[in-house]
Deep mutational scan, measured.
Amino acid sequence: HNLTITQGKLFFHYNPKLCLSEIHKMEEVSGTKGRQERNDIALKTNGDQASCENELLKFSYIRTSFDKILLRWEPYWPPDFRDLLGFMLFYKEAPYQNVTEFDGQDACGSNSWTVVDIDPPLRSNDPKSQNHPGWLMRGLKPWTQYAIFVKTLVTFSDERRTYGAKSDIIYVQTDATNPSVPLDPISVSNSSSQIILKWKPPSDPNGNITHYLVFWERQAEDSELFELDYCLKGLKLPSRTWSPPFESEDSQKHNQSEYEDSAGECCSCPKTDSQILKELEESSFRKTFEDYLHNVVFVPRKTSSGTGAEDPRPSRKRRSLGDVGNVTVAVPTVAAFPNTSSTSVPTSPEEHRPFEKVVNKESLVISGLRHFTGYRIELQACNQDTPEERCSVAAYVSARTMPEAKADDIVGPVTHEIFENNVVHLMWQEPKEPNGLIVLYEVSYRRYGDEELHLCVSRKHFALERGCRLRGLSPGNYSVRIRATSLAGNGSWTEPTYFYVTDYLDVPSNIA
């Protein structure tokens, strides 16, 4: 807008934040220059609390790290170098490059900038070799853009010569660093050979998330399962459950009422301010606690030095998902009996873990797994792929695949051998790939016309006998059925096997 004052003059007093240069501009645009008398524009009460600059400061050096910015700028000295009290560095987070010096300023003089007072450097006698002032900004957020400017702080001049310097606002972004852990990993099994893994992005990506790394490792069953005799009275049979499938998407929606109208769909109840505040506090606490764990609990591995020492970490090797089922080394339970199943799973520490690289999504279907087997899954978020990966501390989750139908069934015939004193040795093959492992066998036998009897055969007993022995049988026709019990439950009964026990007292003698 054009402003013209045809008559009258300007009068400025007691404006401590208004620089004289701005008042002189007002004289020019209003056409009143030359009308004012000496005392109409006070030299001592206008701009006496402001830094009124008329020179431009330029930054000469900028260096960044993930949490620091090192700045240096060209030296500046007023005509009387004693008038320079120091520099004021202003900075704040700036997602967009549209910041002005006066953003967030209120009537009390406060604003949204963080201000650092910096002492002037030592003055050199040689004007050509003056030290460049600077400042190291610490405690910054990774991968965050900051708006920065600097200006001088000078003393009051009796001659009211307006001098000083100020830089333009520059924008500097800190470097990326390792992201925080992925949030809320959930693993479920939808079949006997697959596990579905879902997660949420890290709360602090500290860069642009480029991919996720998912490692999985087959877990050995508890050692007590191999040692305890679950045929003993009072000892509860062990059981394991597989990871249940995901709930429906509708039930997972946030901010939804727990109660549904019987007449149909209901609208979600909005969260109160107290609920939102509580969630923010919980989120802040979780982030602080995660940072504490990362800094205190997890110790970084030592990389190899120039002395030739090897990095103890196993090298990563990509495998196809079809090879995942046989990740671990199978060892027989008892070496003397080769027909026992290889369900003991000690994992070799030198073995390469299978892994998958996930790009542009937060889910993965891990296939080719062994049925009813526990897996430990390790999830890392990465925001750099080359020249070397920059990934987060791992988040861990466990899951067990679903049982395989008929995996616990005894394959092959049940054979028998009759000894003296009416002892019958029953023999059968253990299931080759049971659900988890076989903890015991149930032997059901009966003599024709009598009630059915049951015998429990422990895992250890089966390994020693290759089956079991029935003792003290009365003469007669017998039928026997056997079924295995694994961590997933009972298998199917075998087809009945028949044998006849004679009275050993009636056996004919070869003595003449």
Rank of each mutant, 00 (worst) to 15 (best):
V296D: 01
G368Q: 14
V365I: 01
P387H: 07
Y375F: 08
T333P: 12
I438F: 05
E249Y: 06
V414R: 03
C266G: 03
V331Q: 15
E265L: 09
L237W: 11
V359N: 08
S344T: 11
L505K: 09
N477V: 03
E430L: 03
P300Y: 04
A399E: 04
Y441H: 03
S223I: 08
S458F: 07
P332W: 05
S257W: 06
D222G: 07
E221S: 14
K460E: 07
G436D: 13
F337V: 05
G476H: 01
R301W: 07
Y259S: 10
N383W: 01
E420S: 03
L437W: 02
Y396M: 15
S392A: 01
V439R: 09
G306Q: 06
A335Y: 04
E495H: 09
L225F: 05
H454M: 01
F226S: 05
D450S: 10
H371C: 06
E389I: 11
R353N: 13
G264S: 06
N326L: 10
Y441R: 01
S458W: 05
S342C: 10
P434D: 00
S479H: 10
G467N: 05
E227Y: 06
R319G: 12
N383S: 06
E282F: 07
F462H: 13
R481M: 06
F419K: 11
T288S: 04
K357R: 10
K357A: 15
S315L: 12
E279S: 03
H416Q: 11
E388S: 04
S458T: 09
Y448R: 13
N435M: 00
W242I: 04
A330L: 15
A309L: 13
N477C: 06
V345S: 11
P475K: 11
P338Y: 09
H371Q: 12
V365L: 08
P314Q: 06
P245Q: 11
I438E: 02
C456L: 02
F226D: 04
A488Y: 04
S320C: 08
R353G: 09
R313H: 00
S320A: 15
V439G: 08
E224Q: 09
F285P: 02
Y230E: 03
V324A: 09
V359A: 13
A407Y: 06
S304I: 09
R318T: 12
R376E: 03
Y445S: 06
L437M: 14
A405D: 13
A395K: 04
L464N: 09
S251E: 14
H416Y: 12
V214H: 01
P205L: 14
K432D: 10
T328K: 10
S509A: 08
P338H: 09
